[in-house]
Nucleic acid binder design. Sequence first.
DNA 1: AAAATGAATGAATAGTCATTCATTTTCTGG
DNA 2: CCAGAAAATGAATGACTATTCATTCATTTT
Lengths: 208, 208
Amino acid sequence: MMAVAATKSNRTASKEARRQQLIEATIKCISKRGIGSTTLGDVAKEAGLSQGIVNLHFESKDNLFNETLRYLAEEYKSLFEKTLEKSGPGAADKLLALMELDLKPSVCDQKKIAVWFGFWGEVKAMPAYRKMCNEYDRGYDRVIERLSEEIIAEGKYDNINAKNIADVLSSLTNGLWLSCLISPKNWDRHAALESVKGYLKSVFPKHY
Amino acid sequence: MMAVAATKSNRTASKEARRQQLIEATIKCISKRGIGSTTLGDVAKEAGLSQGIVNLHFESKDNLFNETLRYLAEEYKSLFEKTLEKSGPGAADKLLALMELDLKPSVCDQKKIAVWFGFWGEVKAMPAYRKMCNEYDRGYDRVIERLSEEIIAEGKYDNINAKNIADVLSSLTNGLWLSCLISPKNWDRHAALESVKGYLKSVFPKHY
DNA sequence: AAAATGAATGAATAGTCATTCATTTTCTGG
DNA sequence: CCAGAAAATGAATGACTATTCATTCATTTT
């Protein structure tokens, strides 16, 4: 965990590494205790550092939490873009790959989802959280809508609306994440993926 | 707001009314401030009562929050059952009515959803919340699965799985709620309902 | 009307936690 | 190796808040 810090002998790099380390500790704490009862003491202990360390590197708890959310959002964004780039060539393949991404263990694991829901749960209290979630999500929705449009054009599907489909797909994964959070015992990654594929098959029968 | 209390002529009724009043104040506070920064002082002030009142009626903050979640869950359950009963006669009608319920303003409004997400966000920290959510949800899922089975049998649909459809439908509404929470400005109840109907149409084309 | 009961109050308490800062440790350039 | 700078520490501070409880208030019973 401190590998990065250990390999750096340069101060600004070390500073960056500490921030990273603290953000990771924050994620771990929130996933264990929830946002409401994660204290700066918890985070410092999880990182193996001293009480005052968070304020030294992040000024305030608020700021730490904001940066943590941004980190998660950037992490997802980069996975999303990489997936989009590597998959294909057709729109149908790309769309499926994106849906699969959302259910991959690295994205859809109980710990990480607990953190996302923690932030979502505070959206009403922290407009900054809402703003950030909104901005990132908007981008994904647009991509999914365009892919759907392409598929609709390719297949000459009638009577269906790309916006609706994009809405359903993004809602679907968010909803599946909730099940994973609420009923981890019964949660079945494979079944969830089958549900998503079933949906794709029913709207785009010529493609899936 | 104190109408119930005002009509009391016996003490136990008044006691029940106070609990109710405090639970409603809690919901209001959580929807405004989020779970993390709702204090007992806030709740008391929102209810127009004194500092110590919550502990008098609920023993502890934990207990108040648990009872609040139970209240919300019971409220939804009763709407669900009433909807199931009044709609019909066919399974397809019942299913649609249940989906419509989830998007009705009384169920799907920003304030109430903020409270649900607040509780979901704390699930990792509070196993009691998870347990409660789990128990209630399981019942709804079963109903939806059975309705889907009926529809599948009626329509002699091939190659589709009632469990998958039930998963998709419940995930779908939860995901749509998240959009309503995160992007209330762009949230369009009618569009959301169209998305759900679009899905039903694509899996059960003979029925919708 | 007096006494009794229980609801409600709100000030006091005890504990928690974010933040600060004086001090110590570690690093770097000369 | 040293002086100065940056990083890190952790005890102290002050704000906040759940909970308690002695007291007050309102209603019911005798």
